[in-house]
């Protein structure tokens, strides 16, 4: 049986839009309304950021949204409470939790996976969980609760390592568009990025590929999506929420600006 992530890729095949937002931002209880609004507007997957005090892989925009979310009182306990009924409202859209290992370790990895599974979460993106630690320590727990790990690939990731990651998940592979943290501009010479995307495409991997980091508008989305199965937008969406009086309405406008 296909999981929700695989179903989403089977339904659409290409140009999938994955939107990231930080739970608890702009205000504490925006989490569920934002998931509903993003789904309604046509987002194909949703990444819910679990805010952390020291997000090493993130640029200034997501750092700032994380600080605000923490100041608003967001925590894993609050987040799982908010997500308790989410699957009655949003039954089909894949939901992924994205965040750093330390808050999860304090919560307890097994307890975390259990709570995520109970809420109807499909996958986890934990950038500072290394592949070797995942395989040796956490893989059985992920499997027990039916959670898919999503691994990041960069231009420097060796092909054998990519193939290995591809065997460990039934979700998608997250292609980091180039060097840098989230929300940065593409500073690579023309053609370098495309060559990297095409090199990975030519590997004929089991899993579909989404491209993220530095994707922020319709043209960058379409460009990235043309080299993979779709793309991931985070920082640009957070910026769109920044001064919005009505976060769900801003979310709908934002998704429309990418897809229409």
């Amino acid at each position: 049986m296909q999981n929700r992530i695989q179903q989403a890729f089977a339904r659409k095949g290409q140009n999938l839009l994955n939107v990231y937002f930080t739970a608890g931002y702009p205000s504490l209880h925006d989490t569920v309304p934002l998931i509903e609004a993003l789904t309604e507007a046509g987002a194909d997957l949703i990444e819910i950021g679990m805010p952390f005090s020291d997000p090493l892989a993130d640029g200034p925009v997501i750092q700032q949204s994380s600080s605000v979310a923490l100041a608003n009182g967001m925590s894993l306990y609050v987040l799982f409470e908010q997500l308790r009924e989410i699957r009655t409202k949003v039954p089909d859209t894949p939901l992924l939790l994205m965040g750093y290992l330390n808050p999860i370790m304090q919560f307890g990895m097994e307890k975390f996976c259990q709570a995520a599974a109970e809420a109807g979460v499909d996958g986890l993106i934990l950038p500072d969980l290394p592949l070797v630690e995942y395989e040796e320590q956490y893989q059985p727990i992920f499997k027990k609760y039916g959670l898919q790990p999503v691994f990041l690939i960069t231009p420097q990731t060796a092909p054998a390592r990519i193939r290995h990651m591809d065997t460990l998940t039934d979700a998608f592979l997250y292609l980091v568009s180039g060097p840098g943290t989230t929300g940065g501009a593409n500073t690579q010479a023309e053609g370098v990025q495309e060559a990297y995307f095409e090199r990975i495409a030519a590997m004929n991997l089991r899993n579909p590929r989404l491209i993220g980091f530095g994707i922020g508008d319709k043209s960058s989305f379409q460009h990235a999506a043309s080299h993979a199965h779709g793309a991931i937008i985070g920082s640009a969406f957070i910026r769109a929420l920044e001064d919005a009086p009505d976060a769900p309405a801003a979310a709908k406008r934002f998704v429309a600006s990418i897809l229409n």
Binding site: L76, L101, P103, Q106, F107
Partner: peptide, 22 residues
């Protein structure tokens, strides 16, 4: 400090009950 992860290492660190580094 309690065990946790800071700057890529599992070690003792000062953090709150939610694993946010203080």
């Amino acid at each position: 400090g309690t065990p946790g992860i800071i700057h890529g290492s599992r070690t003792l660190l000062m953090q709150d009950e939610h694993g946010q580094i203080t």
